[in-house]
Design a protein around this nucleic acid. Structure first.
Lengths: 192, 192, 192, 192
DNA sequence: TATGAATGAGGATTCATTCAT
DNA sequence: CATGAATGAATCCTCATTCAT
């Protein structure tokens, strides 16, 4: 009951920001959609910017938690990589709103660079570790880690974009497999 | 002399939209930065939206022209792929403003979907042809073409993002090579 | 303990109203500065207006009490006049916050005219009596009483304003003397 | 025609600020009273604060010009002093709105200290010169100049306050005379 | 008494667009 | 073509006040 209205505001903002964009969404419309008064929004968030920032961090954290959940250190690297990729894709397809939100705002100047960086490190941090372990084990190609990380991120965004635009394809196994296969090939050493 | 002011407006808009975002940039500030009166902007563009659309198409076309310039049908596929990739990267690094602009607006709801689609097909069209030829020749992996195209786009965006953020890396050959290598591995058949 | 919080609110309001003005000071900021919850303010005062009114009357009364304290009917008029002037000045300099508050609000439309008039008569009432006695004794010039009263008030405000702006001057005796001397000359019969 | 609307805004602001106070007057109401759109106000003034500042300086300058108009260096000091006092009083009574405005805002925190100081020096500057000349000629009492200036200002404010509150008194010559006489006595040496 | 979340009307300011010059 | 004053709807945010706890 304490966080009821605050959560309602976050939910409404997620939908509206994603559908209309940050600037095109008025705080009044968010409040209305959340079923609260305009003042209430500003009781919980210092400003519209602060609302966006908190929303972004919240969503990003949710994905991060999800992806790290089933990692097992005893499994092989390929297995773990596939698990992370698959979990991420499924989360994105189960939460299209959130993925579209993320897709849109991870490049937008509406979000302050600090928040963007903070959110990125939260998710990409553990991925970086995975890559490094793989390189040491010789299972991952020996490209510069920072470049690879950015590339992985780019492929993940592209894949979710594609399947969100063409949901029917997600049901076809060779599409699912191709998406991961392409990703995996790009980061593994050239033979095998 | 005829298009002097129009060009000045386009230039100013490019910079301001990129730095501040579409909605955060007022037409008045664009006019001021371009050294013209507020009214002048509306002599050359029907609306702010129209200005953005024209700017986006202009920039996109510039990149498309650049990338297709040196293609030679008699060269091998890998050669041509590398040429396209390299040309694209160099254009992006030579025109950071434009690349950042593109990066930002190709996902933004500020741009109408029609314009976005129009621009995309202009660039990705010829790339799609390239991929198809490659698959028929067995030089490109047999993944679904639409998925691959999206993935290529994603990797290109990721690479430019990386090198624009870390310009010094572009001078290091192993970074340049790794970027292309990762891309190339992801689309070629399993290396045996 | 009963009036602890009420007094804290009055104190905080005095400071904030003086520094920022009535309308620029929110009740929330007063409550915060007083260390109480927003609602508490409205348990002790019916409204923000009522808080200002009570504060004004309180401060004004304090000055009135101070000035009348040492009056002795057996002393000469000049002595008593000097006593009142000096006491008033000292109070103002010892309570700069309160004097500034008074200075600001005795002309402001934030205060209802009734409150203003009530407060004025409280202080100026006994001064009017003093002046009248002096005129009857031939020690005070024969100017219209109402005009003189306003003039005295104006000179008092001017003097406190001056010494509050230039505190160091108050240590110089010829400044202190000159202030009173100017006041005294203005109300005594032509010196022959 | 150029300054038509700007002047209308200044006029409307003068009336409304004086009657309701700065914060209690909305920019929308000023625009409405001036017969212009809300946006127009902000086309001519950067902010509500800037409008107040410009208004204050304008009004103050008008008084300053008026008071210095008929000064003649060949006239005696008393003559000039009376001229300045009388001119000031008449201006105040002819422009009650402006005098009330000034009365209210010369102490209000709504006005920035810099603007206040600037305005004061404009008016009080030449008065300071007059006083100094008088002291050198032995016609003005030898009180500290800065203190005297503040005192003169205070008496002027008090007198205009009185006559604006009691307009009928201004028709009675002994009231007019008494006001000046009190002022004059306060600044002249003790005998004569 | 005390609290502080909730309210929603109201306020300052911005901005795309128009139009008379 | 070019100008820039004018427009007024729309926006973000504030704030005095209430009330359930």
């Amino acid at each position: 009951m304490r966080t009821d209205k605050k959560q309602a505001i976050l939910d409404a903002a997620l939908t509206l920001f994603t559908e209309q964009g940050y600037h095109a969404t008025s705080t009044a419309s968010i409040a209305k959609a959340a079923g609260v008064a305009t003042g209430t929004l500003f009781h919980h968030f210092a400003s519209k910017d602060a609302l966006l920032a908190e929303l972004f961090l919240t969503v990003k954290q949710e994905l991060a938690v999800e992806m790290q959940a089933g990692l097992k250190s005893e499994s092989g690297l390929r297995h773990n990589a596939h698990h992370v990729w698959q979990t991420g894709m499924e989360w994105a397809l189960d939460n299209p709103q959130k993925q579209l939100f993320f897709q849109q705002f991870c490049m937008s100047p509406a979000l302050s660079p600090e928040i963007r960086k903070m959110a990125m490190e939260e998710v990409l941090g553990f991925l970086g570790d995975l890559l490094l372990q793989g390189q040491q084990a010789g299972e991952i190609a020996d490209f510069p880690a920072d470049l690879m990380l950015e590339n992985c991120h780019g492929q993940f965004l592209a894949a979710t974009r594609f399947f969100l635009d063409n949901p029917a394809r997600w049901q076809q196994h060779h599409y699912q497999d191709a998406a991961f296969q392409q990703f995996w090939q790009s980061i593994t050493p050239i033979h095998n």
